[in-house]
Design a protein around this nucleic acid. Sequence first.
DNA 1: GCCAACGTTGGC
DNA 2: GCCAACGTTGGC
Length: 154
Amino acid sequence: MRHWLIKSEPDVFSIDDLAKVAKEPWSGVRNYQARNYMWKDMRPGDLALFYHSNAKPPGVVGVARVVGEPYPDPTQFDPSSEYFDEKASEDKPRWWLVDFEHVATFSEIVPLDRLRNDPVLEKMVVCQRGSRLSITPVEAAHFKKLCKIAGEKL
DNA sequence: GCCAACGTTGGC
DNA sequence: GCCAACGTTGGC
């Protein structure tokens, strides 16, 4: 099993929103690297740290799980969607996604500051300067340590 | 294939 | 609101 970190702006879609739905299609990702992670590398059952970006403070707030296999992001075919892509077609989709389900909400956020001040967790991609990628791989040891800090037993 | 211009992300 | 970092676009 692989581990991941997914970013979401809580004003748009928060961990609480995820907790309210059975599963959420991770639509609207329009970055090739992030797409490739969902398309080629994610497997059902993979766990992901749920990260709140553009938040005060930014940080990891819980855990989500990949549900099912990747499929084409339907918003790319919808002209009324802000994620519409005129260069994509049903026979040649450009954007792929997976669904995520809620696993856990931490009792407290683990702020980005906290990660940056940790000699081990500072190595996480999300801690790197200028890191903008919305989906990144996470080492199993980092995932485990972060859950421990959060007091989360999975 | 280079690279300047532009748009977006996201911490601060 | 600012701005550094980064990805994408398009002219050449």
